[in-house]
């Protein structure tokens, strides 16, 4: 591929990344928040708002403003890079840098999400409670193929990490991160499969269908993160060692596409979490 065409390809992927990760995600999160307010107002469904609704709206609006501001800044940077006739490599580096910046709204959301999750879990439970009287297994929520792949990818990444550590006799930041991330995920997967893991209810009022969906999401997230982390670290470590000869520009394009797909998935899930939820247990007129 000629440098000109490669620059064009990077520019297209970069523009798509800005559109998807900044503007589209801001629009979808705003839509999810609006749907929640319209369909389940706080006066009728107080149990859906364990934190003050105004506070939740304010935080959501702030995060969306940050997303849009980052999107606008990224557009300006992209246009100026193209005007300067930046090389494909420097454009790809800029694109990767913007990915990191686009993660800022997620980082801003984390403390509030943790507070919200804690508040939901600690709501007083209803007097009448029911549960399934059977033992569940991880493969009820995740396919055996994903289980095997998650464990295999984690092991592959750890093997790669340990080999490189022995070879270079030094624990670089990349190796440390790989060891910590893949080690943690592998231990967590094994605990879920064989150990005494308890899956707590996200909130005491959730219907059984929603509870099943929430648990399935958590399980799938664990094993898919293990697959993604294992693949990512195996690839990056192998690439940096020169075992894989791939132009860094294509690696950056691949990372950008993966980020966009993840962003799409998370934003669609935010909307589904509102539209598919059974709101009945959260009404004021339901017995507590």
């Amino acid at each position: 591929m000629t440098p000109g065409m490669l620059t064009l390809l990077v520019a297209i992927v970069f523009a798509s990344q800005i559109l998807v990760c900044s503007f589209l995600s801001a629009w979808r999160f705003a839509r999810a928040a609006r749907l929640l307010r319209q369909q389940y107002p706080a006066e009728k469904y107080p149990r859906l708002y364990p934190l003050p609704p105004e506070q939740m709206q304010r935080h959501a609006a702030l995060r969306n403003a940050v997303r849009i501001a980052i999107g606008i800044a990224a557009v300006v940077l992209l246009v100026s890079a193209l005007v300067r006739r930046a090389s494909p490599g420097s454009l790809a580096q800029l694109m990767l840098g913007i990915i990191l910046v686009q993660l800022i709204p997620m980082a801003l959301a984390l403390p509030q999400q943790i507070r919200l999750a804690k508040a939901m879990r600690s709501m007083p439970a209803p007097a009448i409670r029911s549960a399934d009287l059977r033992s569940w297994s991880a493969t009820e929520f995740v396919s055996p193929a994903e289980v095997l792949l998650g464990i295999a990818m984690s092991c592959a990444a750890l093997a790669c990490t340990l080999y490189l550590y022995v070879r270079h006799s030094a624990l670089t930041p990349a190796l440390t991160l790989s060891l910590v991330a893949n080690g943690f995920l592998l231990v967590r997967m094994l605990l879920v499969l064989y150990g005494p893991t308890v899956m707590h209810r996200p909130d005491p009022y959730m219907s059984e269908d929603d509870l099943y969906r929430a648990r399935r999401f958590r399980m799938r997230l664990l094993f898919r993160m293990a697959i993604a982390a294992g693949l990512y670290f195996s690839f990056v470590l192998a690439w940096r060692e020169g075992w894989l000869r791939i132009d860094g520009v294509y690696v950056a394009i691949g990372l950008s596409i993966a980020t966009q797909l993840t962003s799409q998935y998370l934003t669609r899930r935010a909307i589904r979490a509102v539209t598919e939820r059974d709101p009945a247990p959260y009404r004021t007129d339901m017995a507590g």
């Binding site: 399934d132 059977r134 033992s135």
Partner: peptide, 14 residues
């Protein structure tokens, strides 16, 4: 038939 572990049933029934 396997019954749920003690801690899991306790968590489900709160």
């Amino acid at each position: 038939t396997a019954l749920p572990p003690i801690r899991q049933l306790a968590a489900d029934l709160q």
